[in-house]
Computed example of a mutant assay.
Amino acid sequence: METASQSRLPRERPLLTLGAAVLLCELVGITGALFTATGVESWYATLNQPELAPPNWVFGPVWTTLYALMGAAAWLVWREGSGRSQQVALGLFGVQLALNFAWSFVFFGAEAILPALAVILVLLFFIGTTATAFWRIDRRAALLLVPYLAWVSFATYLSYGFWQLN
Protein backbone atom coordinates (compact mmCIF):
# COMPACT_ATOMS: atom_id res chain seq x y z
CA MET A 1 0.00 0.00 0.00
CA GLU A 2 1.26 3.43 -0.91
CA THR A 3 1.98 5.78 1.96
CA ALA A 4 1.26 9.49 1.91
CA SER A 5 4.98 10.27 1.76
CA GLN A 6 5.45 8.05 -1.32
CA SER A 7 2.69 9.81 -3.22
CA ARG A 8 4.22 13.23 -2.41
CA LEU A 9 7.76 12.20 -3.32
CA PRO A 10 7.63 13.19 -7.02
CA ARG A 11 6.24 16.61 -6.06
CA GLU A 12 8.64 17.22 -3.18
CA ARG A 13 11.75 16.07 -5.05
CA PRO A 14 10.91 16.55 -8.72
CA LEU A 15 14.43 16.53 -10.18
CA LEU A 16 15.50 13.54 -8.13
CA THR A 17 12.42 11.48 -8.99
CA LEU A 18 12.47 12.54 -12.66
CA GLY A 19 16.11 11.48 -12.83
CA ALA A 20 15.30 8.17 -11.17
CA ALA A 21 12.43 7.47 -13.59
CA VAL A 22 14.60 8.26 -16.62
CA LEU A 23 17.51 6.25 -15.22
CA LEU A 24 15.28 3.22 -14.65
CA CYS A 25 14.14 3.28 -18.26
CA GLU A 26 17.68 3.83 -19.54
CA LEU A 27 18.86 0.84 -17.47
CA VAL A 28 16.26 -1.36 -19.13
CA GLY A 29 17.59 -0.12 -22.46
CA ILE A 30 21.20 -0.74 -21.49
CA THR A 31 20.36 -4.25 -20.31
CA GLY A 32 18.55 -5.00 -23.57
CA ALA A 33 21.43 -3.49 -25.50
CA LEU A 34 23.73 -6.17 -24.11
CA PHE A 35 21.93 -8.69 -26.33
CA THR A 36 21.94 -6.26 -29.22
CA ALA A 37 25.67 -5.54 -28.99
CA THR A 38 26.64 -9.18 -29.37
CA GLY A 39 24.07 -9.90 -32.08
CA VAL A 40 24.64 -6.83 -34.27
CA GLU A 41 28.24 -7.61 -35.12
CA SER A 42 27.69 -11.29 -35.78
CA TRP A 43 24.22 -12.63 -36.58
CA TYR A 44 22.42 -9.40 -37.52
CA ALA A 45 25.10 -8.47 -40.06
CA THR A 46 24.41 -11.70 -41.97
CA LEU A 47 20.68 -11.02 -42.39
CA ASN A 48 19.08 -9.71 -45.54
CA GLN A 49 17.99 -6.18 -44.63
CA PRO A 50 14.50 -4.88 -45.34
CA GLU A 51 14.15 -1.76 -47.41
CA LEU A 52 14.43 1.37 -45.24
CA ALA A 53 16.57 -0.38 -42.61
CA PRO A 54 18.65 2.41 -41.05
CA PRO A 55 22.39 2.11 -40.44
CA ASN A 56 23.33 0.55 -37.10
CA TRP A 57 24.63 3.82 -35.61
CA VAL A 58 21.09 5.28 -35.64
CA PHE A 59 19.70 2.88 -33.05
CA GLY A 60 21.76 4.01 -30.04
CA PRO A 61 20.83 7.71 -30.13
CA VAL A 62 17.21 6.96 -31.02
CA TRP A 63 16.70 4.47 -28.21
CA THR A 64 18.52 6.63 -25.66
CA THR A 65 16.15 9.48 -26.50
CA LEU A 66 13.08 7.25 -26.43
CA TYR A 67 13.96 5.77 -23.04
CA ALA A 68 14.42 9.28 -21.64
CA LEU A 69 10.99 10.29 -23.00
CA MET A 70 9.46 7.13 -21.54
CA GLY A 71 10.95 7.88 -18.14
CA ALA A 72 9.64 11.45 -18.24
CA ALA A 73 6.19 10.20 -19.22
CA ALA A 74 6.08 7.67 -16.39
CA TRP A 75 7.27 10.36 -13.98
CA LEU A 76 4.43 12.69 -15.02
CA VAL A 77 1.90 9.94 -14.35
CA TRP A 78 3.56 9.10 -11.04
CA ARG A 79 3.50 12.79 -10.13
CA GLU A 80 -0.01 13.67 -11.33
CA GLY A 81 -1.91 10.45 -10.88
CA SER A 82 -3.40 8.82 -7.87
CA GLY A 83 -5.36 5.75 -6.93
CA ARG A 84 -6.41 2.96 -9.21
CA SER A 85 -5.96 4.83 -12.51
CA GLN A 86 -2.35 5.60 -11.66
CA GLN A 87 -1.68 2.00 -10.61
CA VAL A 88 -3.17 0.66 -13.84
CA ALA A 89 -1.27 3.16 -15.99
CA LEU A 90 2.06 2.46 -14.33
CA GLY A 91 1.36 -1.29 -14.38
CA LEU A 92 0.78 -1.11 -18.14
CA PHE A 93 3.95 0.92 -18.45
CA GLY A 94 5.86 -1.83 -16.63
CA VAL A 95 4.42 -4.50 -18.93
CA GLN A 96 5.41 -2.63 -22.07
CA LEU A 97 8.87 -1.97 -20.64
CA ALA A 98 9.30 -5.70 -19.96
CA LEU A 99 8.11 -6.50 -23.50
CA ASN A 100 10.58 -3.96 -24.86
CA PHE A 101 13.37 -5.80 -23.09
CA ALA A 102 11.96 -9.17 -24.20
CA TRP A 103 12.07 -8.15 -27.86
CA SER A 104 15.82 -7.43 -27.65
CA PHE A 105 16.40 -10.77 -25.97
CA VAL A 106 14.28 -12.74 -28.45
CA PHE A 107 15.49 -11.01 -31.61
CA PHE A 108 19.19 -10.58 -30.82
CA GLY A 109 19.80 -13.00 -27.94
CA ALA A 110 17.80 -15.96 -29.22
CA GLU A 111 18.11 -14.93 -32.89
CA ALA A 112 14.45 -15.86 -33.31
CA ILE A 113 12.85 -13.57 -35.88
CA LEU A 114 9.27 -14.88 -35.94
CA PRO A 115 8.90 -15.02 -32.14
CA ALA A 116 10.42 -11.51 -32.01
CA LEU A 117 7.76 -10.36 -34.47
CA ALA A 118 5.08 -11.78 -32.15
CA VAL A 119 6.64 -9.98 -29.16
CA ILE A 120 6.81 -6.65 -30.97
CA LEU A 121 3.16 -6.89 -32.02
CA VAL A 122 2.16 -7.41 -28.39
CA LEU A 123 4.53 -4.58 -27.40
CA LEU A 124 2.86 -2.26 -29.91
CA PHE A 125 -0.53 -3.04 -28.38
CA PHE A 126 0.72 -2.34 -24.86
CA ILE A 127 2.37 0.93 -25.87
CA GLY A 128 -0.96 2.09 -27.28
CA THR A 129 -2.80 0.90 -24.18
CA THR A 130 -0.26 2.61 -21.93
CA ALA A 131 -0.54 5.86 -23.88
CA THR A 132 -4.34 5.72 -23.53
CA ALA A 133 -4.06 5.17 -19.77
CA PHE A 134 -1.51 7.99 -19.52
CA TRP A 135 -3.81 10.31 -21.51
CA ARG A 136 -6.46 9.97 -18.83
CA ILE A 137 -4.00 11.18 -16.19
CA ASP A 138 -1.69 13.62 -17.97
CA ARG A 139 -1.90 14.29 -21.69
CA ARG A 140 1.72 15.41 -21.79
CA ALA A 141 2.75 11.93 -20.65
CA ALA A 142 0.77 10.32 -23.45
CA LEU A 143 2.28 12.70 -26.00
CA LEU A 144 5.77 11.83 -24.80
CA LEU A 145 5.05 8.22 -25.82
CA VAL A 146 4.11 9.15 -29.42
CA PRO A 147 7.71 9.04 -30.75
CA TYR A 148 8.15 5.66 -29.05
CA LEU A 149 4.94 4.37 -30.61
CA ALA A 150 6.07 5.64 -34.01
CA TRP A 151 9.53 4.06 -33.70
CA VAL A 152 8.17 0.70 -32.54
CA SER A 153 5.71 0.80 -35.45
CA PHE A 154 8.72 1.25 -37.74
CA ALA A 155 10.57 -1.52 -35.88
CA THR A 156 7.54 -3.76 -36.44
CA TYR A 157 7.84 -3.13 -40.17
CA LEU A 158 11.55 -4.00 -39.94
CA SER A 159 10.85 -7.16 -37.92
CA TYR A 160 8.30 -8.27 -40.48
CA GLY A 161 10.78 -7.52 -43.25
CA PHE A 162 13.50 -9.55 -41.56
CA TRP A 163 11.09 -12.46 -41.17
CA GLN A 164 10.09 -12.30 -44.84
CA LEU A 165 13.65 -11.99 -46.14
CA ASN A 166 15.35 -14.49 -43.86
Rank of each mutant, 00 (worst) to 15 (best):
M1N: 13
M1D: 15
T3S: 15
T3C: 08
T3A: 11
S5C: 11
S5T: 11
S7Q: 13
S7L: 09
S7E: 15
R8C: 08
R8I: 06
E12C: 06
P14L: 03
P14E: 02
L15V: 13
L16H: 11
T17R: 03
L18T: 10
L18P: 01
A20C: 10
A20E: 06
V22S: 08
C25T: 08
C25S: 10
C25P: 00
E26P: 02
V28C: 11
G29M: 05
T31W: 13
T31C: 12
A33C: 10
A33H: 15
L34Y: 14
L34C: 14
L34H: 14
F35K: 01
T36A: 04
T38F: 14
T38L: 14
T38A: 15
G39V: 11
V40S: 10
V40T: 09
S42C: 13
Y44T: 05
A45D: 13
T46W: 11
L47N: 06
N48H: 15
Q49H: 15
Q49V: 07
L52Y: 15
L52E: 13
A53F: 14
P54K: 08
N56R: 12
V58M: 15
G60Q: 12
V62K: 04
W63N: 02
W63Y: 08
T64K: 11
T64Y: 13
Y67E: 07
A68Y: 09
A68N: 09
A68T: 14
L69M: 12
L69P: 01
M70S: 07
A72V: 10
A72Y: 06
A72C: 10
A73M: 09
A73G: 13
A74T: 06
A74F: 06
W78H: 08
E80T: 10
E80A: 14
G81E: 04
G83I: 13
R84N: 11
S85A: 13
Q86S: 10
V88W: 09
V88C: 08
A89E: 05
G91T: 08
L92H: 03
G94S: 08
G94A: 12
V95T: 05
Q96K: 04
L97G: 01
A98I: 10
F101M: 09
A102R: 02
W103D: 00
W103G: 00
F105R: 05
F108W: 08
F108R: 01
E111F: 03
E111S: 11
E111Y: 07
A112Y: 01
A112T: 06
L117K: 00
A118T: 09
V119A: 00
V119Y: 00
L121P: 00
L121H: 03
L121E: 05
V122W: 02
L123A: 01
L124I: 07
G128P: 01
T130C: 08
A131S: 09
T132C: 15
T132N: 15
A133D: 04
A133C: 10
F134M: 04
I137M: 04
I137C: 03
I137G: 00
D138N: 12
D138L: 07
A141G: 05
A142I: 03
L144A: 06
L144S: 03
L145T: 02
L145V: 07
V146C: 11
P147H: 05
Y148V: 00
L149K: 03
L149S: 04
A150H: 06
A150D: 08
W151K: 01
W151V: 01
V152W: 00
A155T: 03
T156V: 03
S159I: 00
S159D: 05
L165I: 08
L165G: 07
L165E: 10
N166W: 10
N166K: 12
N166I: 12
